[in-house]
């Protein structure tokens, strides 16, 4: 499903002395099946932005279109929107409330009025790598942090969205938990051809996974381009105070020292191969 924004703006506390422009005239188009990364500092407008994509907030000016249809248009219900755009917020384990994992995952599916709830729950659990029989009757509150998070993600998947938005899905997890979650998101994207939008502070995480990157700064969409090009715009990133991935930094350091490396690369495996290639050649 494609997501498009036209002159999207949002002002909090409009018409008051506290008025604050959180989003300023944002235009973008995300294609069906793309994997988009969103970067920016805390307070750059990232979370205001994603809340517009499933209508938790409505733009004070401009439009958000899903497959060409304005989600704030006449006759469109909130339910129609959240059905298509699933959002997994930061620390999503806080949204768990039922006494069994099954019931919690079924919550969204039931709200959407789906029929085969059990089938959907089962599929969602498999998608996040939780064994249905083993986990379905367990209480979500006794799980580890990473597992709770996967239950929460399954709860969103159970609504069968075409667009999946994840806000810092790995924050607070240990390195292994992080890796597992990202592996999971990657396979999900492949298997279901979900249009995926990932908000993350970690350049390393984003660089390994995103096709294109949106850079937010002070409510503006500073840049929206292929990952390679965004990381090549070091000056802009530096001005905003954002870092580039360590892998890319290494290539730049080597280039500086006269090595003939391809500095367009940024994925960890590619970078290692490149370093090895250049050294073996020389």
């Amino acid at each position: 499903m494609s997501v498009k924004g036209i002159n999207l703006s949002h002002t909090y506390a409009l018409h008051s002395i506290f008025a604050f422009d959180a989003l300023k005239d944002i235009n973008f188009e995300i294609n069906d099946g793309e994997f988009i990364g969103i970067i920016g500092h805390t307070g750059s407008g990232k979370s205001t932005f994603i809340q517009h994509l499933n209508r938790l907030l409505s733009p004070t000016a401009g439009h958000v279109l899903l497959d060409g249809v304005d989600i704030n248009g006449d006759g469109i219900m909130m339910k129609d929107v959240v059905k298509k755009v699933g959002v997994v917020f930061q620390y999503p384990e806080y949204q768990l409330f039922e006494d069994t994992i099954y019931k919690d995952i079924a919550f969204g599916a039931k709200n959407m009025g789906y029929e085969d709830i059990e089938g959907i729950v089962k599929e969602s659990m498999e998608l996040v790598g939780l064994d249905f029989e083993y986990y379905k009757d367990k209480a979500p509150f006794n799980l580890s942090g990473g597992q709770k998070r996967r239950v929460a993600i399954a709860g969103v998947l159970a609504m069968k969205p075409s667009v999946l938005i994840l806000d810092e899905p790995a924050s607070g997890l240990d390195p292994i938990g992080r890796e597992e979650i990202f592996e999971n998101i990657k396979t999900l994207h492949k298997k279901k051809n979900l249009t995926t939008i990932l908000v993350s502070h970690s350049m390393n995480d984003i660089s390994n996974i995103a096709d294109r990157i949106m850079v937010f700064n002070e409510g503006k969409l500073e840049m929206f381009d292929e990952t390679k090009n965004v990381f090549n715009n070091i000056k802009m990133l530096g001005n905003i105070g954002l870092d580039i991935p360590e892998s890319k930094k290494l290539l730049l350091l080597l280039k500086e020292r006269g090595f003939d490396v391809d500095t367009d690369l940024y994925k960890e495996d590619d970078v290692i191969n490149e370093v090895v290639r250049v050294l073996k050649k020389g």
């Binding site: 938790l56 339910k79 959240v82 699933g86 917020f89 806080y94 949204q95 919550f107 709200n111 969103v156």
Partner: peptide, 16 residues
């Protein structure tokens, strides 16, 4: 703040 956050999360799961 937390209440707002939870309300948003549940709204996103279709809670009415």
């Amino acid at each position: 703040e937390e209440t707002n956050r939870i309300i948003n999360a549940q709204k996103s799961r279709g809670a009415d």
